[in-house]
Design a protein around this nucleic acid. Structure first.
Lengths: 109, 109
DNA sequence: AAAATAGGAAACCGAATGGTTTCGTAAAAA
DNA sequence: TTTTTACGAAACCATTCGGTTTCCTATTTT
């Protein structure tokens, strides 16, 4: 019950390599070795990235024989969407305000 | 034209302090000193966070006399929304698959 | 003019990050 | 059974990160 969970979803998507991994996994589940082929770094490095992704809940790791299949865990994106959606209101307001300003023409064209 | 831009939006929102700053700024524009009151750290530390946020484009910094007013730049959230929305399709599919599974009743209730 | 206020720049520090190589182990193939 | 393959754990390394203190420069206020 006392899982520390060192990495959350926000940290997980902060790294470009990890974001690319997520895109790769959106197509189909893959092993570490398969994923590694897409990156100019060692398999171990990719493995660590997968560790962080799986710790954050964004991907699932399932052992199948001697290999581990990594797959997307789309539900985990909800936390991100929820946080982002909070700012939607302001985005809308500010955008319509901007529209107003432009239409009012405070700038002599 | 050759702006390096060390910090992008993904890195910017990775830190919990910065996420909280964004929420604060969503209410109204604030100065560094005002924002600092909400955190158990020095004004300088908060100032650095604001530097990163403003570098990423998520906030705007405008000097007004001796103080700097920081405000939300909601348009910058679009990059995040866009990236996230790519995964919506998979989220939807998996969710409806799950729904199916549940409705089919593979679990004897 | 003097004092107070707002805030950034610089130097510094410990811990975290992203990467490497090396090694051990379990499963599959020969 | 021997060998190959898949992979993680560990130790290590340079750089970045989040924070501090100290100091300097503008603006306000008095």
């Amino acid at each position: 019950m006392g899982e520390a969970q060192k990495h959350d979803v926000f940290q997980a998507i902060a790294d470009p390599t990890r974001r690319k991994v997520l895109v790769l996994l959106s197509d189909k589940e893959l092993s570490v070795t398969e994923i590694s082929k897409h990156f100019p770094m060692t398999r171990t490095a990719v493995s660590k990235h997968l560790g962080i992704l799986s710790e954050s809940g964004l991907v699932d790791a399932t052992k199948k024989g001697r290999e581990t299949r990594y797959s997307l865990q789309p539900e985990a994106f909800l936390e991100l969407k929820d946080w982002l959606s909070f700012f939607d209101q302001f985005w809308d307001n500010k955008l319509s305000m901007l529209k107003h300003l432009v239409e009012d023409g405070s700038k002599t064209e």
